[in-house]
Amino acid sequence: MSQDHVDAAAPRRSIYRHALAVRLTHWLNVLSLTLLLMSGLQIFNAHPALYWGDKSDFEHPLLAMTAADAPDGTGIGVTTVLGHEITTTGVLGLSFSANGRPVERGFPSWATIPSYQDLATGRLWHFFFAWLLVLNGAAYLAYALASRHLGRDLLPTRHDLAHIGRSIRDHLRLRFPKGKEAEHYNVLQKLAYLLVIFVLLPLIVLAGLAMSPQIDAGFPVLLDVFGGRQSARTVHFIAAWTLVAFVLVHLVMVLVSGVWNNLRSMITGRYVVEEEEASDGR
């Protein structure tokens, strides 16, 4: 076990890991993504169904959340995914208000902003924080390019890629690098960050814009890219949950690789590196 190596006497040193610009844009990004997800679920609830193509084929949604009557007269929540019905009472389709009353809604009130059904207000939140996400993302990219953060810290080196197998094995054993190697992101971390920054986030922004009738008039090519406005809505939804999946893994890695050290580094910039021990088993 990796804990075997923890030695109170192991030499440590503190390094400056994250520039102010990275820390600031990171936390603004966390804020806007959280609010975008929850206001997005509010928007979704106005018509809790997804389709493929240009128009909605109401009889054949890819995904739909509805409430139905159980044989005993009580309400149940039903989620239909690609034609398969799943009972999701309490969470999707039908959930319970604070006073225990069953309410028909796609996602439950604890997942949406506002907590009550209000599409207009959900849209207010969504478009405000969409702008924050985009402007913050542009500021981050400008900084990452100008300061060479992108090239220096995020692009995998040839050496990184050659040793990706080892990095995967280390991750599976929750064994994290020490010494010189710990000063940089490892290769899986770099690839995950690049995927989020250059694929997922641009994808969700473009899919969001493809749902705009005004943008579609100016850039009909967006509809060709996504395969229609309803497809863009579906892609937007899938991209949102893929981001959630990334964040869950990201949070687990932050937790298991030294939660206070990681958080301190993303708040104050300083990160403590444990020196490599000669007796390291590798």
Binding site: L124, F127, F128, P213, Q214, I215, D216, G218, F219
Partner: peptide
């Protein structure tokens, strides 16, 4: 404050898409 995004949407979208753009 939230609604300030609406003005940005109007101006930027019209600028990007053009005032004569036809819907598909």
């Amino acid at each position: 404050l939230l609604a300030s995004a609406e003005g940005a949407n109007l101006r930027v979208q019209r600028l990007l898409a053009g005032r004569q753009a036809l819907a598909p």
